[in-house]
Amino acid sequence: MSAVFGGLDLCSCKRGFFTLRDCANGAVATCGACSRRICAEHMTQAGICVECAAKRQEDAALEDDTTGYAIRSRHRWYDSGNYSPVWWGTSDPYWSDTDYRWYDDPGDQDDDGGGFGDS
């Protein structure tokens, strides 16, 4: 995989907290879990990228008896009771279920309903 910047093989991880952006560092290894190319900054001692390491930590926390039990119990409770959140909004009969009506323009002579063929 060659990158746009002078043929460099760039890291596949993202940088940033509020706004994610591509990492501009050159890749030096391949993640052992997801096979993405990563730089030295985004590689852990286990030879995997920081994102795969975080995923492993989350999975390990869910396997913990107390946390995992609570999450599994909540999931079973909501599934068995057909739970759905309460909606306190109102509906407007003008709008359809898919809200396409705002695209409808009575003066539009170009729309013949034929799809993209007339574009």
Rank of each mutant, 00 (worst) to 15 (best):
A33W: 04
D59Y: 05
D111S: 09
P85Q: 03
C52I: 00
S35Y: 05
T66E: 03
D9C: 13
A60R: 03
P93Y: 00
M1E: 13
P106V: 01
R101Q: 13
F17Q: 12
T44K: 07
R72L: 08
W95T: 00
R56I: 11
W87D: 06
E51W: 04
A3T: 12
E58N: 11
D92I: 00
T98E: 07
N25R: 09
Y83R: 04
G7E: 03
G47H: 00
C13E: 14
G107Q: 11
N25W: 03
L20P: 14
Q45Y: 00
Q109L: 14
D22R: 10
A24D: 13
G81S: 15
A3G: 12
S96A: 15
V28R: 03
T19W: 07
K14I: 05
G89S: 07
M43G: 03
A33G: 08
M1G: 15
G6H: 09
L20E: 14
R15N: 15
T98G: 06
I71H: 03
E63L: 07
S2E: 14
G89R: 02
T30P: 05
D97I: 08
V4Y: 12
F18H: 08
S96M: 11
A60M: 04
R36G: 09
D105P: 04
Y94I: 04
C23W: 10
A3P: 04
Y94M: 07
T98R: 08
G16A: 08
W87E: 00
G16Y: 02
W87V: 01
G26P: 08
G68I: 01
Y100H: 14
T19N: 12
D9I: 08
S84V: 10
T66Y: 00
F17I: 15
L20S: 13
W102D: 10
V4F: 14
Y94H: 09
E51I: 12
C49W: 00
D64N: 14
I38Y: 01
M1N: 14
D112W: 10
C49K: 02
D118Y: 10
R37Y: 02
A27T: 02
R74S: 12
Y83Q: 05
G115Q: 01
R36A: 09
A33T: 09
D64I: 06
N25M: 05
R15K: 15
L10H: 06
R76Q: 12
G114L: 06
S96P: 14
W95F: 05
I48H: 00
R72W: 01
Y69F: 05
T90G: 12
V28K: 02
D111H: 07
R72S: 11
